[in-house]
Write a protein that binds this DNA or RNA. Structure first.
Lengths: 206, 206
DNA sequence: GTCAAGATGACACATCGTGCCAACTAGTCA
DNA sequence: TGACTAGTTGGCACGATGTGTCATCTTGAC
């Protein structure tokens, strides 16, 4: 049910730290959504989370990171799920199965996800940070493929495609009011749309 | 030859401002590459460009933007070139022709481009800003497609694919020491690699 | 209970970014 | 040439971000 299977392996201290970061992320998102990113100071978030600003900066690197402190390793689940997939299918297909597995956990708290997306749309700096996060996911995907014998160039391109598929599916899901249970449907639609229609029409002479 | 055809339409004042921004971009990149982003202060860049820090912030929004002040609308050339392409081919094919046209101007100053990429790799904040810039390009591409009758969903996905193709081609070009004249070759290779090999192997049951 | 290691808060400090105002410059018109 | 106007610049003050340092408090093991 939970996001990954290593929670019970954490020490009490690590659990407390994770809870603190989750708390910061919730308060930061709430405040950013309510009064805007610029109008929210670090002191505001720290106050809401009952800590000093100095302690705030011990738990998150900067003001931006407060909002991202909760969901940092969601794509680790993709790689984990992909690693348990049928080893006979191509690595990229294993990955897409992993992405489908992620879709389930990503659909939790849809209204929070929508609020989050609104905040990102309103603040270029936060959107930039989100994209940088996605780039790290992309590098995880690339590593997964390379470890399974895909060449570096192919793995890089394929990882870019996987993230593009994920982004577009997620975007459509958000645009459709983040209805629970439908993210996987959007994912299938995007994958189906991909080779048949768009790309072949782009390179008609091949 | 030049990046776009509107230079002669600028007023003297606009030309001065553009020159100032180019100067800031050059000095910022040079300093970031030489001593690192964190170790370079706004005062350093402003001094190098012979201005006060107050004036610095009148020409660029923040420290990050100094480095990006030069090349903000390179993808406007793509859309412009795509708009002059054969109207009988699909819009996405027009776009790829535009991207090929961009490849030529992007290949200028290869050593600067490599230095720039090194700086971006070393500084997550700058990489994030670069990705945000690319997202704006992607939105330009999406708009281009929608204006030509492509549905919003298809245009969004296709724009994501175009940027993924561009990023991967550019990455390979940089990795191959940014040899002039070869970016177009990488572009063709990535496009050729796309539908035949990678995606069909990902969805073998279709 | 004791002790060590980590967590926290307070303070000082450098840097970032902006509002405000005075001085300077370029271009225009008489 | 001289005055006028609009835009540019620099200086100053200020709030906000982020870090180093140290004293104090808490946690967990023994």
């Amino acid at each position: 049910m939970c996001c990954n299977g290593v929670v019970e392996r954490l020490t009490p201290r690590e659990r407390r730290q994770a809870a603190t970061r989750r708390s910061l992320a919730e308060h930061a998102l709430r405040l950013f959504a309510a009064r805007g990113y610029e109008a929210t100071t670090v002191a505001d978030i720290a106050d809401a989370a009952d800590m000093s600003t100095r302690t705030f900066f011990r738990h998150v690197r900067d003001k931006d990171e407060a909002m991202f402190a909760a969901d940092e390793d969601v794509f680790a689940d993709v790689v984990e799920a992909a690693a348990t997939a049928d080893p006979d299918v191509p690595p990229l297909a294993q990955l897409l199965q992993g992405v489908r597995a992620l879709a389930g956990s990503a659909e939790k708290d849809p209204e929070v996800k929508c609020a989050r997306e609104r905040v990102l749309d309103d603040n270029p700096a936060l959107r930039a940070r989100d994209l940088a996060q996605q780039l790290r996911w992309q590098q995880q995907v690339q590593r997964f493929l390379q470890e399974r014998g895909v060449t570096a160039d192919e793995a890089s391109l394929a990882a870019g495609l996987v993230l593009t598929i994920w982004r577009e599916s997620y975007r459509r899901w958000i645009a459709a009011s983040a209805e629970p249970g439908s993210l996987g449907t959007f994912l299938d639609a995007v994958v189906a749309e991909l080779p048949d229609h768009i790309l072949t029409s782009a390179v008609p002479d091949r």
